[in-house]
Lab assay of single mutants.
Amino acid sequence: KLETFPLDVLVNTAAEDLPRGVDPSRKENHLSDEDFKAVFGMTRSAFANLPLWKQQNLKKEKGLF
């Protein structure tokens, strides 16, 4: 399991300012399950079932792209 970080560490943070080991294209993977659901309004599995373009739009909207 990946290390999780608080939302404010990941949202609207440039790649070079992210904690070590965080993939800038997969910031959402480093949210706790609770934060993930609070941000996206759905579970990880529901998010994973969305088309890629919709996932990317949601990530942009939430500052996690």
Rank of each mutant, 00 (worst) to 15 (best):
K1R: 14
K1T: 13
K1W: 11
K1Y: 13
K1I: 12
K1A: 13
K1Q: 13
L2R: 10
E3Y: 08
E3K: 07
E3I: 10
E3S: 09
E3V: 11
E3C: 13
T4K: 09
T4G: 04
T4F: 15
T4R: 07
T4V: 13
F5A: 02
F5E: 03
F5N: 02
F5G: 02
F5V: 05
F5M: 05
P6T: 07
P6L: 04
P6N: 06
P6K: 05
L7K: 05
L7F: 11
D8V: 09
D8R: 08
V9L: 14
V9A: 08
V9Q: 09
L10N: 02
L10H: 06
L10W: 01
L10Y: 02
L10K: 01
L10C: 03
L10M: 03
V11S: 07
V11I: 14
V11N: 04
V11Q: 12
N12W: 11
N12K: 06
N12S: 09
N12A: 09
N12E: 07
N12G: 10
N12T: 07
N12V: 08
T13Y: 08
T13N: 07
T13I: 10
T13R: 07
T13M: 10
T13L: 09
A14N: 13
A14D: 08
A14K: 14
A14R: 13
A15V: 14
A15Q: 08
A15C: 13
A15F: 10
A15Y: 08
A15G: 09
A15M: 10
E16G: 09
E16N: 09
D17Y: 07
D17F: 07
D17K: 05
D17Q: 07
L18W: 05
L18S: 04
L18E: 04
L18I: 06
P19A: 01
P19N: 02
P19R: 01
P19H: 03
P19T: 01
P19V: 01
R20M: 15
R20C: 15
R20D: 15
R20E: 15
R20N: 15
R20S: 15
G21D: 09
G21H: 08
G21W: 08
V22W: 03
V22Y: 03
V22K: 02
D23A: 02
D23T: 03
D23R: 02
D23K: 03
D23S: 04
D23G: 02
D23V: 03
D23P: 03
P24E: 06
P24R: 03
P24S: 07
P24C: 06
P24D: 06
P24N: 05
S25M: 14
S25Q: 14
S25V: 09
S25R: 09
R26I: 05
R26Y: 10
R26K: 13
R26Q: 11
R26L: 08
R26M: 09
K27V: 15
K27I: 15
K27M: 14
K27N: 02
K27S: 04
K27E: 03
K27R: 15
K27D: 02
E28R: 00
E28M: 01
E28P: 03
E28V: 02
N29E: 14
N29T: 07
N29P: 01
N29K: 10
N29M: 15
N29V: 08
N29G: 07
N29Q: 15
N29R: 09
H30L: 05
H30R: 03
H30Y: 14
H30S: 07
H30Q: 02
L31F: 02
L31K: 00
L31W: 03
L31R: 01
S32A: 07
S32P: 01
S32C: 06
D33N: 09
D33R: 05
D33C: 07
D33E: 12
D33Q: 07
D33H: 07
E34Q: 12
E34P: 10
E34V: 10
E34N: 11
D35E: 08
D35K: 01
D35H: 05
D35G: 03
D35N: 05
F36G: 00
F36A: 00
F36P: 00
F36C: 00
K37N: 14
K37Y: 14
A38C: 10
A38D: 13
A38W: 12
A38M: 13
A38E: 12
V39I: 08
V39K: 01
V39Q: 04
V39E: 03
F40W: 01
F40T: 01
F40V: 01
G41A: 13
G41C: 12
G41S: 10
G41R: 10
M42D: 00
M42V: 07
M42Y: 06
T43F: 07
T43Q: 09
T43C: 09
T43I: 09
T43R: 06
T43A: 11
R44C: 03
R44H: 07
R44L: 06
R44A: 06
S45Y: 14
S45Q: 14
S45R: 11
S45L: 13
S45D: 14
S45T: 12
A46Y: 10
A46E: 14
A46H: 11
F47E: 00
F47P: 00
F47M: 01
F47N: 00
F47Q: 00
F47Y: 08
A48P: 00
A48Q: 13
A48I: 08
A48C: 10
A48H: 14
N49A: 13
N49P: 01
N49T: 11
N49G: 13
N49R: 11
N49K: 14
L50V: 04
L50Y: 05
L50W: 04
L50Q: 07
L50N: 00
L50T: 02
P51T: 06
P51G: 04
P51N: 04
P51Q: 05
P51K: 05
L52V: 14
L52Y: 14
L52Q: 11
W53E: 14
W53C: 13
W53H: 12
W53Q: 10
W53R: 09
W53L: 12
W53Y: 14
K54P: 00
K54E: 12
K54I: 14
K54S: 10
K54G: 07
K54L: 15
Q55I: 04
Q55M: 05
Q55E: 00
Q55K: 07
Q55S: 03
Q56N: 14
N57F: 13
N57A: 15
N57W: 11
L58I: 09
L58K: 06
L58V: 05
L58T: 04
L58H: 05
K59V: 05
K59Y: 03
K59G: 01
K59W: 03
K59C: 04
K60S: 12
K60L: 11
E61N: 09
E61C: 10
K62Q: 12
K62W: 07
K62G: 07
K62V: 15
K62F: 11
G63P: 01
G63C: 06
G63Q: 05
G63S: 04
G63H: 06
G63E: 03
G63V: 01
G63K: 06
L64Q: 02
L64R: 01
L64F: 07
L64I: 05
L64E: 02
F65P: 04
F65S: 15
F65H: 15
F65C: 14
F65R: 04
F65A: 15
F65Y: 14
